[in-house]
Design a protein around this nucleic acid. Structure first.
Lengths: 196, 196
DNA sequence: TTTTTGTCTTGATTTATGTCATTGCACAGC
DNA sequence: GCTGTGCAATGACATAAATCAAGACAAAAA
């Protein structure tokens, strides 16, 4: 694959720390582009999460299926976002989650061992992935604080406000799974809020 | 304060990456020990989270108070654990959360600017805090996947299994706040599970 | 000792949400 | 044109959980 496949990711990194030609070269070599179609899986339950994923284009979701078959969604990812089961990837152990493609997607993937090589090649990558991990933790912390104990009406408003670019792109069922409510409940809340 | 105040933290770091004498010295100087009494606050809503906190001894919780006055708890922290409002600390903006001391505690605190100095002093600290951030993200991801859409019975079992060392140390109200349920519900669930 | 305080339990009731079933609609494929 | 498919809306009903209230109990304070 040509060098420019990794360009969106290199641009992303450069906003954090400028990279030398050589470092950019390493990024291009370590991150492999891959195309996925809608409904395919980047990660399936029981498998090890082999790659740290960067979305160049498309849309994905990561969720846990519970006993009743509900899709409890932890995260969506669109252009210029990362999506990875942190626990499975860093510990290289079997995952309890799935990552599914919602819209045909182009992904840049780095393996665990290649990421370790990248860290050793330049401390800049340590910094970049420290910051990415921090941002990931911030996102999870914010989301947790919103869904924990909040009534469904507030969760709906929070989603609309926090992720306006996702509202038109996802189905109600998908958003509901992210907020920990059913799609029927979601539908009723929408009606209730418009009327108030 | 004497040099050995930071020793538990240095030991913690050494398990990730061995440190030179000089690096240990920097840790001792950047992290300031502070004593807190039960019911005091390390962070109050509306303030900026000035410090990244490491618990040497004691017990703390971080929570968001909602409209109804519930304590929606994101995290507990005991010996050898970190507790910080990531969003407020990294962005140095006002916090929506509080960090409260549940048992008299000894904390090691580093300011945001001192942490940046530490990063610039040695890339080892980039690595250490990358790994700490990863662990934090893993914890949050796991907790989110458990409380999102899971019935209260399963949340209870999950807590007992995942945090046995906390069960005897926290009150039911405190655990319930972490699981996103009321203490009455928690009490009934306990009864129900023993009988089955 | 008695009082106070906090925690847990238990019951009665209300409320929010889930569940199940049905309908309508838009869209893709034949 | 149909026909299937997926998604959203809505109604009827069931159920889980919150709420409100009371009482038991233990530990700490007076």
């Amino acid at each position: 694959m040509s060098m420019e496949a990794a360009q969106p990711l290199i641009d992303y990194f450069q906003k954090i720390v400028p990279l030398t030609e050589n470092e950019q070269q390493w990024v291009s070599e370590c991150f492999k582009p891959r195309l996925y179609r809608k409904r395919q899986f980047v990660l399936q339950e029981g498998d090890v999460c082999k790659y740290f994923n960067f979305v160049v284009r498309g849309c994905l979701r990561m969720y846990k299926v519970d006993d009743k078959g509900n899709y409890n969604t932890l995260q969506f990812a669109i252009e210029n976002q990362f999506i990875t089961d942190a626990e499975s990837f860093y510990n290289q152990e079997n995952s309890a989650l799935e990552i599914e493609v919602l819209e045909n997607a182009e992904i840049l993937q780095i393996s665990h061992s290649d990421l370790l090589k990248l860290y050793d090649f330049s401390p800049k990558f340590e910094r970049i992935f420290r910051i990415i991990s921090q941002q990931n933790a911030m996102f999870l912390q914010k989301h947790l604080s919103q869904v924990l104990g909040m009534p469904s009406g507030e969760r709906y408003l929070y989603f609309e406000q926090e992720y306006p670019q996702l509202v038109g792109r996802l189905s109600q069922v998908q958003i509901a799974g992210f907020l920990g409510i059913t799609s029927e409940c979601f539908s009723r809340i929408k009606l209730h809020i418009k009327n108030s």
